[in-house]
């Protein structure tokens, strides 16, 4: 079960990426999204890929972890790719399969779309693998703080986000326990038709969801019991510290953005 649920997990480590300020990683992520949106050809995809691989190497987390994070979304990626391949009619016709024709433009669009999505997931994994969930929420809170003046309930949003992020691993663990309890009592997805597989997966989701609700309720009570109030001033245990390496990290994203713009 755990092998299937890698996305959104934090993996302990001592790499450069682990030590960076969460704000710089979040800013880097935004730059990276911009770069990924600019990608629209094989060459620019290659540039994005090389840059992502460099970042992945810097995390000192084996590539297999990233592959496992991408795996659950493989059907979505395949669907997007095939959609482009079969419904884009730009470029030269390469192949005719029944009523469908495959064009070089469609093939490029399909593969680039798949590549963009893969890069995006890989980079989102870099952020979650190297940053504890509450630190991501703190960073986001600090980015959103100026919006408070405009009446945006920043604190409420940050609390919601930090709690949801905090419970990702807990809910995974709980799902794993329920899964194990079911497997021990003869539950199996192997050799089952697709319909039965879907039905049995729902059998897993129901107890996980209901348990998440119960947990949320007791958490709210526990926070209230310890005098948590929205909007009250409070100090932080972990202070965020922006260093030179953080500035360099964010600046390094200008390189792929420039290169991708140049080769577009």
């Amino acid at each position: 079960m755990k092998h299937k649920l890698m996305l959104g997990r934090y993996i302990e480590g001592q790499s450069l990426l682990h030590r960076l300020d969460p704000r710089s990683k979040l800013a880097g992520m935004l730059c990276f999204i911009a770069a990924v949106f600019l990608i629209n050809s094989y060459v620019t995809l290659f540039i994005g890929l090389v840059f992502t691989l460099i970042i992945i190497v810097l995390t000192k987390i084996p590539l297999s972890y990233y592959i496992r994070a991408i795996k659950p979304l493989i059907f979505l990626i395949a669907f997007i790719t095939l959609f482009h391949i079969f419904f884009h009619t730009e470029g030269a016709r390469m192949l005719k399969v029944g009523v469908f024709s495959i064009y070089s433009g469609g093939l490029e669009k399909g593969l680039v779309a798949a590549g963009r999505m893969t890069l995006f997931i890989a980079f989102a994994s870099v952020l979650s693998f190297t940053t504890q969930p509450d630190r991501i929420a703190n960073a986001l809170g600090s980015f959103l703080r100026p919006l408070k003046r405009l009446g945006v309930p920043v604190e409420r949003l940050t609390l919601m986000l930090s709690l949801s992020l905090r419970f990702i691993p807990t809910i995974f663990e709980e799902a794993e326990r329920i899964w194990k309890a079911q497997v021990s009592r003869g539950f199996s997805l192997a050799d089952q038709p697709l319909k039965e597989k879907a039905k049995r997966t729902i059998a897993l989701l129901v107890p996980v969801t209901s348990s998440a609700f119960r947990r949320a309720e007791s958490l709210a009570d526990a926070m209230e019991a310890r005098s948590y109030r929205l909007g009250a001033s409070r100090s932080q245990y972990r202070q965020m510290l922006w260093k030179r390496s953080d500035t360099l990290f964010v600046l390094s994203f200008t390189l792929p953005i420039c290169l991708i713009t140049l080769f577009n």
């Binding site: 329920i178 194990k180 021990s184 009592r185 003869g186 059998a203 348990s211």
Partner: peptide
């Protein structure tokens, strides 16, 4: 047969009776 540490997470059917039947039927 394995009984886990957190029993509340091992019962996932609507009633205890259905839960007791889950293993034997599987």
């Amino acid at each position: 047969g394995l009984v886990f540490q957190y029993p509340e997470q091992q019962l996932f059917k609507e009633t205890i009776w259905e839960d007791l039947l889950y293993g034997p039927l599987n």
